[in-house]
């Protein structure tokens, strides 16, 4: 029997998330070694979505419908998915490495008795098997892992694969099942994160961002001054700086903050963790200032400046001053 690769689709506001399409691309690449992708969509009303994705992708789709699958929570999702998986016994179960994916994947793996490898960025294959690469240590290290079990649950790093655009001539099959839950699944509601949503970041041409490497709150002064030399400059931040209370969360850029794509992004004392980079990699030009020549931010910067920012930025500001 042909092996299967299951993709667990993720919905947001009634649509597939971009990350879901990326996982489909990932599964196709993984499937090029002999297994066939299949998509599972858990949700409240999924027939329309199931038919759409089966038509555009040509992949077979199983929808699982239940009231309790409207918004994500681990218990009902896990039991509904396990119920469908038990007849399929797939080689791989793939999810996006999102707030849903990493919440769900490890528990699924424990219950299925398989390995779990998260935030996969690369696949390599040789005669002995398939290997998965992922970042460690904030992106300073790339490690290659292999499951020690026959089967595995994988989460795929958002942005590592391009969303699938392949149109298929033949639509995949669609099957929609109703999940049955004993009462007692708790009430889940969605809310906006409180406060500070208004931000000047979207309109900025240049964003100067502060990371933990600024060392202390007082050094924000020089970051603000640097942003001030540009006509439409704004101050951004890594999550660490917001957690320290040095800047409000409206300044946070990244996976759980804002996504920005200014003409110029200047990263000051930011290591370049994946979760930060995912929010600013669309910038047209990136300048990074960091004392560590191996800081991962330099892997995506156009101009790399290995300097102590507390000395470099004042020197830069002084030169700008004298030129005026």
């Amino acid at each position: 029997m042909e092996e299967k690769i299951v993709v667990i689709a993720e919905l947001s506001r009634g649509r597939f998330t971009r990350a879901t399409h990326e996982v489909i691309s990932f599964a196709r690449e993984l499937g090029s070694v002999g297994a066939r992708p299949e998509i599972i969509i858990p949700g409240k009303n999924v027939r329309g979505l199931a038919e759409e994705i089966a038509r555009t992708s040509g992949i077979d789709v199983i929808g699982i419908e239940a009231e309790a699958l409207d918004l994500y929570s681990a218990e009902p999702f896990k039991s509904a998915i396990l119920d469908v998986l038990k007849d399929m016994n797939p080689a791989y179960v793939c999810l996006p490495h999102s707030a849903m994916g990493f919440d769900l994947a490890p528990g699924l793996a424990v219950d299925l008795g398989t390995a779990c490898i998260t935030a996969v960025e690369e696949i390599r294959e040789d005669e002995k098997g398939i290997y998965f690469s992922r970042s460690m240590w904030g992106g300073k290290i790339r490690a290659e892992l292999v499951p020690m079990t026959q089967r595995a649950v994988l989460t795929v790093l958002p942005g590592a694969w391009t969303a699938s655009v392949e149109e298929s001539g033949i639509a995949g099959s669609v099957r929609v099942v109703k999940a049955d839950f004993a009462s007692g699944t708790s009430e889940i509601t969605l809310m906006e994160a409180p406060g500070e949503r208004e931000s000047e970041l979207p309109g900025a041409d240049v964003i100067v961002s502060a990371g933990r490497g600024i060392g202390k709150e007082e050094n924000l002064g020089m970051i603000r001054k640097l942003a001030g030399i540009f006509s439409r400059g704004a101050v951004g931040a890594s999550r660490s700086v917001c957690d320290l209370g040095w800047l409000g969360y409206k300044h946070q850029i990244g996976f759980t903050g804002r996504t920005v794509s200014p003409g110029l992004y200047i990263a000051c004392g930011i290591s370049g963790a994946i979760q930060h980079i995912s929010g600013m990699k669309g910038s047209q030009m990136v300048i990074a200032i960091n004392t560590d020549p191996h800081a991962p931010i330099f892997n995506i910067a156009d101009y790399c400046i290995v300097e102590d920012l507390t000395e470099f930025i004042p020197a830069l500001l002084e030169l700008v001053e004298t030129a005026r």
Binding site: S12, L71, S73, A99, S186, E187, I188, L190, A193
Partner: peptide
């Protein structure tokens, strides 16, 4: 729980 796009899921 913090999820994507500045949203949260709240639960007991």
């Amino acid at each position: 729980r913090e999820i994507e796009e500045g949203q949260r899921l709240r639960m007991e």
